[in-house]
Structures are given as structure tokens and as C-alpha cells.
Design a binder for these strands. Structure first.
Lengths: 104, 104
DNA sequence: TTGACATGAAACTAAATGGTTTCTTATAAA
DNA sequence: TTTATAAGAAACCATTTAGTTTCATGTCAA
């Protein structure tokens, strides 16, 4: 679950779309795949990449596998953006610190 | 310069490293390439991807090409993160709005 | 307990990606 | 005006990626 895996995971538009969909709540592979032209195995692979990046959690229930968004994993991205905010706008850095303080 | 090109550009660790380096100021291809094991043409390709994502600007000076960081392009990423902050932490959304208000 | 259904796994393919080498062009400096 | 330097361009290669098809497995329901 390295930082790199998060960047990799969000690089693909289909995966970002899946994340947006899961923001609406837990969904099975079938539910998710119904929204795309591609086959289920293709969607499964995207879900695996998202899981490796820590962006979703998977839970088996009966013969289904339910996927839930894990948006906290996006903090790596926020950290990275924070570095550049030095050269851009100090407010992003402030926000980042606020979010982190919120963690405890 | 689509949103996708920004996500694609930052997906590669070498390119993120180049961005960090350029945060220190304008640099020529030679300057940048000196910091990597790979050949100059390889670095050139990375720079092209960064340029396509709007993350750097290139300016010719004599026989050199000077590259400067364009961190504003990272706003697409911030926007996208902002959507998920709904499901995570409202503070990120606040920050995003603050940054955008700052634009005028 | 048979059948249908949700998923996993494996083998394969096409295209994109990250890299190389070689060659050319433009500018600066001796 | 040669010569050296900075970079672009093109052709090529290996690996990864995003997708497919086919087959196997586990679970629910008739």
C-alpha cells in the first residue's frame, strides 16, 4: 500500500469513476460492472488496483463481494499536494494540517 | 490539457520527482537529466508528459530549454479530492473554496 | 440436490509506457 | 569557421496495462 500505488490507482479514469460510484455506498462487483461496457473480469482488475492502493476495502458476504470506499487513503495525495502548495498557495498547507490534527 | 493528462502526469514517480526539483526554480534539460540514471531523451519524454498536463512551462533560451513548474495545474487534483472530502472531512472542501476565492 | 448465479483464476492479446541508440539540427565559443 | 554543446526526432525494444475469453468454484434457491 505504498504512496505510489495510490497515485497509480487514481491515474485511470475508470477507477476514478468507480470511486465516485462507491462514494454512494457499498456495492458488489455485479452492481459496479453493470455501469460499464467492459466485462466483469476487467472490472475485477480495476478493483484489485484500487484495493492495493488502499482506496477501497472488500468484504465477502455470501457469494457476493462488497466494496466500500476508503477515502482516507487519499491523504497521501493531499500530503503531496501540500508540498507544492508552498509554491502556490499557503492555504492548502493550512488545510492539510487541519485535517491531520483531526485524526487523533 | 485535460484533467486526465494531469492525473496521468503525476502517476509516475520520476515525473513527481522532476516536479519537486523544479519547485526549486527553472532548470534546463541538462540540469534535470544530471539527477537521473536515465538518458536525456528519456527525461525529455517525461518533460513532455508534464507539459501536456500543464504542470510545467517550457521556454527556449539560446540552445537551452528552460523548464518551470506550473503548480496551478494541480488544482484539477484538488477539485477531485474535494469531491471525496464530502465523505471524509469537510475541511478539505473549505480549503478548496478558499483557494478558489483567492484566484480573482 | 440440482440448477442458477456471483465471483475468481488463468491464459492470451493489443496498445501504451518507459526506456534505449543513433542521427540531425541549432547555438555558442575557440 | 571549425568544434563542441544542448537539444529534438525517429526507430526500436521490453514491460506493463487494460482488456478479452474460457473455465472452475462456491453459495443460494427450487
Amino acid at each position: 500500500m505504498s504512496e505510489q500505488m495510490v497515485f497509480r490507482a487514481i491515474a485511470d479514469p475508470t477507477r476514478r469513476s468507480i470511486m465516485a460510484m462507491l462514494a454512494g455506498g457499498e456495492q458488489s462487483l455485479g452492481d459496479i460492472a453493470a455501469n460499464y461496457e467492459m466485462t466483469r473480469p476487467a472490472v475485477t482488475k480495476h478493483l484489485k488496483v484500487l484495493e492495493q492502493g488502499g482506496l477501497i476495502r472488500v468484504r465477502a458476504q455470501g457469494r457476493e463481494r462488497l466494496h466500500t470506499l476508503q477515502p482516507e487513503a487519499l491523504k497521501s495525495i493531499l500530503d503531496w499536494l501540500g508540498f507544492f502548495s508552498q509554491f502556490w498557495d499557503e492555504k492548502l498547507e493550512d488545510l492539510k494540517q487541519a485535517v491531520e490534527a483531526d485524526d487523533e
